[in-house]
């Protein structure tokens, strides 16, 4: 087990290095960083001295070396526009993203799993059809459109909920619902198909033969085995969500990592762009490691060697 974790961590380091390198390369491919960051009426002298002050006049390899050397300490340099260390900016936004992710995850888990199980158990019933058509709809609706519709209905027409911003529990509702919708649908469908597989297995028949109550068969015996692919997908979703929900955060003016990413790109703030990309990758890799390790708790037959 320990050996497995060590191996995975080593791999994570390699992945992070690769992502950071790509982030570094991409930002330089998008044009000369100095001309990107300056204003409309700067003189050539101003551009040249800016380039020198930012260190963009040094050989690319030297800049890359400096960039890599800072990585282990989480040092991505200082944001050009905001003049604050990149890592500080990321950590300031992370609680907002964490809050939104946690709320969305709560909705995803507590809505998708019961619906998925119900659909599988009552296969081809009206409830199943309604649930699965709903899921298809929820999966196809663009997040952007859904967010604006929720604002219109609950914010502007009914005036039940605040339109945007972060602050109270009520502010959290609309963005969490928007963010959760797609994943809830996706996972409900996966739970359903995974349950259907499991329900056809011999041990379920045995459980029935033993006279176990239905809820126990479905929720204890079947669901536990059906959950492995669900957890995998959930892990990917959480990893993605923690990297920042760009569209949802933008629509609801939610001050999280996604907005920071967008802002970094729009302001051509190269150190910040590199920082958020690498940070997103780190979170993704770690979450997936945790997910992989959790398999053996859910299904003791799985052993990491």
């Amino acid at each position: 087990m320990l050996k497995y974790v060590a191996k995975r961590l080593l791999m994570a380091v390699f992945i992070l290095w690769a992502v950071a390198t790509i982030a570094f390369a991409l930002t330089f491919l998008s044009g000369d960083p100095a001309t990107l960051m300056i204003g409309d009426h700067w003189t050539s002298e101003q551009i040249a001295s800016f380039r020198e002050a930012m260190g963009y006049d040094r050989p690319l390899l030297v800049q890359y070396g400096d960039f890599l050397a800072g990585l282990p300490q989480g040092d991505f340099g200082v944001s050009v526009r905001q003049q604050i260390p990149v890592m500080d900016l990321i950590l300031q936004r992370f609680p907002a993203t964490l809050e939104l992710t946690a709320a969305a995850l709560f909705l995803i888990v507590f809505i998708s799993i019961p619906i998925g199980v119900l659909s599988a158990v009552k296969r081809n019933s009206l409830a199943d059809r309604v649930a699965m058509s709903g899921a298809l709809f929820a999966q196809s609706v663009p997040t952007f459109w859904l967010g604006i519709m929720l604002i219109l209905v609950f914010g502007v027409w009914l005036r039940w909920l605040p339109v945007s911003g972060r602050g109270t529990f009520l502010h959290l509702l609309l963005p969490a619902i928007t963010l959760a919708t797609f994943s809830t649908a996706r996972i409900a469908r996966l739970v359903r198909s995974s349950m259907l597989d499991v329900l056809g297995q011999d041990y379920i028949r045995t459980a029935r033969a033993k006279g176990l109550p239905n809820w126990r068969i479905y929720y204890v015996h079947a669901l536990r085995n059906a959950l492995i692919p669900v957890i995998t997908l959930l892990g990917l979703e959480i990893g993605g969500l923690l990297g920042g929900a760009l569209i949802t955060e933008t629509v609801f003016a939610w001050p999280g990592i996604g907005r920071l990413t967008l802002q970094a790109i729009q302001a051509r703030d190269l150190p910040l762009v590199q920082g958020v990309i690498t940070f997103g990758a780190l979170v993704f890799v770690l979450v997936n490691l945790v997910v992989d390790l959790s398999y053996s708790f859910i299904d003791p037959r799985i052993r990491h060697e």
């Binding site: 502007v156 339109v163 945007s164 609801f252």
Partner: peptide, 18 residues
């Protein structure tokens, strides 16, 4: 001074007095 990047959201806030 608030920042609301999405224009529809800015308008919704204006309409509701936010």
């Amino acid at each position: 001074w608030r920042v609301i990047p999405e224009v529809s959201t800015r308008i919704a806030e204006l309409e509701t007095g936010g």
